[in-house]
């Protein structure tokens, strides 16, 4: 780890003023479960760390007419165990409980979960987010891409978006609230994730002097939902494919749906194709399979990850069937 300055403000305003206008100099520190590892590995090297854990009003879970409001500092563990979440967003609770380990969930915050950096092993080994060698050769394309993107990978970004929780949040229609030097903004969560085109860009629509303040999840009582991960180990593991589904039913047919894939693209990957395929249809093996095929129809696997196309289909298929079988 390199030397850095550590500041611990008590208000959002102070925090924002301590953050720099460009990436590279300052970083927000929440639970530290990701950032500290990146700093120890010399991948991220801030000169100043702005700890936000002392900002009391970034904590807490409440609900109002707009839905559930979750402060950015809420830990994954708190969120998973929240009675309101367990009752009204059970698939979110399930997705959270499948993430990481109990120890990590007790430290990791939801804000940090949205902003965590990709797990791409080239990135984590200090070879860059869009890794190239001196000659400009793209390392992922030429190398070990078994865990990399199969969709949205036509540009230089080949990593996959790391959160296993975000697809479910997007499927539930979550919005993200940000606060920065230029004021407050709110975005649909899916719009928060972007595919970087140059090494100096990040994979979030987050400005360097902005913080995530909270997320808002609209009421979901009329939705059937499910989360499904394909992963190799039962013990903590990064998945090979994730699917999150919410279905709004009309009688026994799907009126509308959200079908979001994870671990397939540099961003969480909503599939309008799959949503369209389910629209007006009953949920059964055949329709679920068709939706899964539609979701992956445009997949462009790399040299070593064609198998992920199959796994992503299985995830979509199983998530749809699981959602229909469940209640919320």
């Amino acid at each position: 780890m390199r030397p850095f300055e550590y500041v611990s403000p008590y208000s959002r305003k102070q925090a924002i003023s301590l953050l720099g206008p460009t990436w590279g100099n300052t970083e927000v520190l929440a639970g530290g479960t990701d950032l500290l590892a990146l700093m120890k590995d010399d991948v991220v090297t801030p000169k100043r760390l702005v700890n936000i854990k002392d900002i009391a009003d970034l904590r807490g879970i409440s609900s109002d007419a707009q839905g559930l409001r979750v402060g950015a500092l809420t830990t994954l563990g708190e969120l998973a165990d929240n009675e309101n979440v367990k009752k009204n967003y059970p698939s979110l609770s399930e997705a959270l409980l499948e993430a990481a380990s109990p120890q990590i969930r007790n430290m990791a915050t939801i804000g940090g979960n949205l902003c965590q950096r990709p797990r791409c092993w080239y990135f984590r080994n200090g070879l860059g987010l869009l890794p190239k060698d001196e000659s400009g050769k793209e390392l992922v394309e030429a190398g070990e891409n078994r865990y990399h993107a199969i969709l949205g990978n036509q540009g230089e970004a080949k990593f996959v978006s790391p959160s296993t929780v975000v697809p479910m949040l997007i499927a539930y229609g979550a919005k993200i609230r940000l606060e920065g030097a230029k004021g407050k903004r709110e975005l649909p969560l899916e719009k928060f994730f972007v595919i970087p085109k140059t090494e100096s860009e990040r994979e979030h629509d987050l400005r360097p002097n902005e913080i995530v303040s909270e997320i808002v999840i609209p009421p979901a009582s009329d939705l059937k939902a499910a989360h499904y991960e394909v992963r190799q180990r039962e013990a903590f593991d990064w998945p090979l494919a994730v699917a999150a589904v919410t279905l709004k039913m009309q009688g026994s047919n799907v009126q509308s749906s959200r079908i979001i894939l994870g671990y397939v693209a540099p961003v969480p990957w909503p599939s309008p194709e799959a949503e369209h395929a389910m629209s007006g249809k009953p949920v059964n093996k055949e329709t679920a399979q068709k939706a899964a095929d539609a979701a992956l129809a445009k997949a462009t696997p790399l040299s070593h990850n064609a198998y992920k196309v199959k796994l992503a289909k299985v995830a979509v298929d199983r998530a749809i069937l699981k959602a229909a079988g469940g209640t919320a």
């Binding site: 797990r119 092993w121 080239y122 984590r124 080994n125 070879l127 060698d133 050769k137 390392l139 030429a142 190398g143 070990e144 865990y147 190799q232 180990r233 039962e234 013990a235 903590f236 593991d237 990064w238």
Partner: peptide, 30 residues
């Protein structure tokens, strides 16, 4: 049998999984 492998990058010649997240070992539930 199921997890371990020293994964090497052909271009840089470096090990890509010198850590405990991608150098997988069986956990309790495995």
């Amino acid at each position: 049998s199921l997890y371990e492998e020293k994964v090497m990058d052909p271009t840089t010649g470096r090990m890509l999984n010198p850590d405990m997240q991608f150098y997988r070992l069986a956990g309790f539930s495995d």
